[in-house]
Structures are given as C-alpha cells and as structure tokens.
C-alpha cells in the first residue's frame, strides 16, 4: 500500500510548499491519487517534473513499482535515467510532483564510491545504527564472495571487487528498494557477466524491488521482470518480461523482445546474436 511509503520531498513546484500534515501522518496526499488496492508498492511517482534551467528533463512522469519487482530502465543517453534515479534516492529534491519511496532504500552507482580511508568492512556497515558491526559486515561480504578482503583498504581492491563491495554495502541495509545506476558499466565483459549473475542471485534471496539503469538490452532481458523505456521525460514504454529463469539469449521470445526494445531505443537493425 502506498501509505507505507515515505514521502521524501516537499516539491518545490507545489503550489503550497511546506510540510503536508496528511502525508506526515502517513495518509494519502490530497492530490486525488488513490493507490491501487493491490500488493504494496516500492515506488510510486505521480506527475514528477524536473527541469534544469529551461531544460525539462522529466515531464509529468508516472511510475509504480510493486514490492520485490526487478525493473530495468532503458533509454537513450541523456534522457534522464540518472536524474530519475537520483530523485528516487532523495539526492535531488528540486522537483515537482509526488514521489514516494520506502524509508529503507540503497543505491549503487557506476563507480563504487567507497570511502578510501575506511577499511572494506567499515565501508559496508557505514551509516547503520549502532556500533560498527563486524559480523554483519562479514556476512554481507561473504554474500558477494569478499569475506577475505574485509580488512583491505578500498584502494587495493580491483574494479570488480570494489563494485561488489558497493553491492554488499547496499544489501546490508536490507533495502526494500535497490537503485542501481549502471553498476556494471565500468566492468570488463567477463566480470560483468559474473556481477549480473550475482545481482540476480542476491535479488532472489532478499527480494528488494530493484530499479536498474543500463544501456545493455541483453542485460535488461536477462535480469528484469519488467523493462521500461524512458523517452521525452516520461516512461514511454513498459514491457513485462515473462520468461522463465535462468534465461536463454537464444530463445525466440527473448530475441523478439530484444528486437522490439532495440527498435524503441532507436536502433533499427538488431545486431545478430553470436
């Protein structure tokens, strides 16, 4: 139910800025929007607008993500994917509209963004309430196969290890919503496959709702329950990926979906599959 979500921002374009007592009390806002009676949502966005000066990047965007769903967000470079993700992460509040996300959410960026002056395990549990919990960090690191590097300095990690640490840091928070902005973008092809597999296994075990931004249609179709295409400031297309897992890139349905998505992304001639 959307009422379990936290209203993260007071939209600056709201005609009546200030704290909305109804939202504070966990009630639905007065905008007239009624949350669907179906399962709980992890993201609920209505009429989201974001402009940089005169450049309106997000224009009255609506989006609902059910709890536990794996959603992949595709779109041309510069169409506003990162902007949307940053808004959902509560890093950008210069917005109009109504955005609701769970209080427990986590982000992994394209670069790992670990604090170089904290050992790996301290990076993982940074920001958790209470004293730094070594055992909890170790458990999270074990899930990404890095328990042996718990005491290492981040600068001594390889790119893939650092990215996995960043994943462990996100997961240790047991997020209801996991936001991933091209987390595999800087990895080599082989490491990338392993990292995708890892994300998929972690998602299956913890079942957060995931919003993954990627440029890779194949990656999207391997991982997602639902693929979104962003264009002209809105979610222009949404397709459910009803394929059994693990998925096969050679499957005809897979190939058809891939061709369709590539077409919507403006790539007319689908590349041939090896």
């Amino acid at each position: 139910m959307a009422s379990s979500l936290q209203r993260i921002v007071t939209p600056v374009l709201d005609p009546e800025p200030g704290i909305d007592p109804a939202a504070e009390a966990g009630l639905e806002p007065a905008s007239g929007y009624r949350p669907p009676a179906d399962p709980r949502l992890a993201v609920s966005v209505r009429g989201l607008t974001r402009a940089f000066a005169s450049n309106t990047v997000i224009d009255r965007l609506d989006l609902d993500v059910p709890a536990g769903q794996f959603v992949v967000l595709l779109g041309a470079s510069g169409c506003g994917k990162s902007t949307l993700l940053r808004i959902l992460a509560d890093l950008d509040t210069e917005i109009g509209g109504d955005v609701r996300v769970p209080a427990r959410r986590a982000v992994a960026f394209q670069s790992p963004r670990l604090l170089p002056w904290k050992r790996v395990w301290r990076n993982v549990v940074l920001g958790l309430p209470g004293r730094p919990d070594r055992a909890r960090a170790a458990a999270a690191l074990a899930e990404v196969g890095l328990e042996a590097r718990a005491e290492a300095w981040p600068k001594t990690l390889s790119g893939g290890e650092a990215q996995r640490t960043s994943l462990a840091r996100a997961l240790v928070r047991e997020p209801e919503l996991l936001l991933l902005d091209e987390p595999f973008g800087a990895l080599d092809a082989l490491t990338r496959l392993k990292a995708q597999d890892l994300v998929w296994r972690l998602w299956r075990r913890h079942r957060p709702a995931v919003l993954l931004v990627t440029h890779d249609v194949e990656e999207a179709l391997l991982l997602a329950d639902r693929a979104l295409v962003m264009k002209d400031g809105v979610i222009a297309h949404s397709v459910d990926v009803d394929l059994s897992r693990p998925r096969d890139v050679g499957d005809p349905t897979f190939l058809a979906l891939r061709a369709d998505l590539l077409g919507r992304l403006g790539v007319d001639a689908p590349r041939s599959v090896a």
Binding site: L91, A106, R113, K118, L126, L128, R173
Partner: peptide, 26 residues
C-alpha cells in the same frame, strides 16, 4: 560523489562531517 554516496547510506549531518568530510580533508 563520496558525500552523495554517504548521504544515501543515511548518515546524519554530523556523521557526514565525521566520517566523510573531515577524513577527506585530512
């Protein structure tokens, strides 16, 4: 980027200064 990442980890303003800004300035 580090400050932003730390904010997504739920660090308070004080925690941000203590764990990110001061060590970063050291």
């Amino acid at each position: 980027g580090l400050v932003e990442a730390a904010r997504t980890l739920g660090l308070s303003r004080f925690g941000l200064i203590r764990h990110v800004i001061l060590p970063g300035a050291l």
